[in-house]
Simulated assay, not measured.
Amino acid sequence: MPVLIDFWAAWCGPCRAMAPQFEQAAQMAPDIRFVKVDSDAAPLASQRYGIRSIPTLLLVKGGQEIARQSGVMPAAQIVAWTRQYL
């Protein structure tokens, strides 16, 4: 199952703006696992994936990163962006 990871932080305004969009996208695409990673709480995960800005979406399939996108997106765009790589 593909996994879409949202790297975010509580202090990040754009991250807070994207949170409800990410939740809505998860409801629109039940065949994709949606996961949120707090960059402050999990700095090693952010370091491992080379996260330089937040929010950043990371699409992983079969344990491999297949796409990355930074910035706020509406739910429909998140789903469309994800589907183009699957």
Rank of each mutant, 00 (worst) to 15 (best):
Cys15His: 07
Trp11Pro: 02
Ile78Ala: 04
Gly13Asp: 07
Thr82Met: 12
Ala19Val: 02
Ser46Arg: 14
Ala29Lys: 09
Tyr49Val: 03
Ala9Cys: 03
Gln84Cys: 03
Ser39Asp: 02
Pro2Tyr: 09
Ile32Gly: 00
Ala19Glu: 15
Leu44Met: 13
Val3Lys: 14
Trp81Ser: 06
Ala42Val: 03
Gly62Lys: 10
Arg52Asn: 04
Gln47Asn: 14
Ala41Asn: 12
Ala76Tyr: 00
Gly63Lys: 10
Ile78Phe: 01
Glu65Arg: 11
Ala25Leu: 06
Pro55Arg: 11
Asp6Met: 01
Gly71Asp: 09
Val60Ala: 03
Glu23Asn: 10
Leu86Arg: 13
Met18Gly: 03
Tyr49Arg: 07
Gln84Tyr: 02
Ile54Tyr: 00
Met73Arg: 15
Asp38Thr: 05
Pro30Val: 07
Gln27Glu: 13
Ile51Tyr: 01
Leu59Lys: 07
Pro30Glu: 08
Ala9Lys: 04
Pro43Val: 10
Gln24Cys: 01
Ala25Lys: 08
Ala26Asp: 05
Asp6Pro: 00
Gly50Asn: 12
Pro43Met: 12
Ile78His: 02
Gln21Arg: 05
Cys15Gly: 04
Leu4Tyr: 06
Ala76Asn: 14
Leu44Trp: 02
Ala19Lys: 14
Arg48Asp: 11
Gln64Gly: 02
Arg33Met: 14
Ala29Ser: 13
Gln69Cys: 04
Gln47Ala: 15
Pro20Phe: 08
Ser53Asn: 12
Leu57Asn: 09
Ile51Ser: 06
Val35Gln: 11
Asp40Phe: 00
Asp38Glu: 02
Gln64Ser: 13
Glu65Ile: 14
Glu65Ala: 15
Ala45Gly: 00
Arg83Lys: 13
Leu57Val: 03
Asp31Thr: 12
Pro30Cys: 06
Cys12Phe: 04
Gly50Ile: 11
Pro43Thr: 07
Ala41Lys: 15
Pro14Tyr: 05
Lys36Thr: 10
Arg68Lys: 13
Thr82Pro: 00
Ile51Val: 14
Ala45Cys: 04
Val72Pro: 01
Val3Glu: 14
Leu58Ser: 08
Ala10Leu: 08
Val60Trp: 02
Met18Phe: 03
Leu86Pro: 02
Gly13Ala: 15
Met18Arg: 06
Ala26Met: 06
Ser53Thr: 15
Leu4Asp: 08
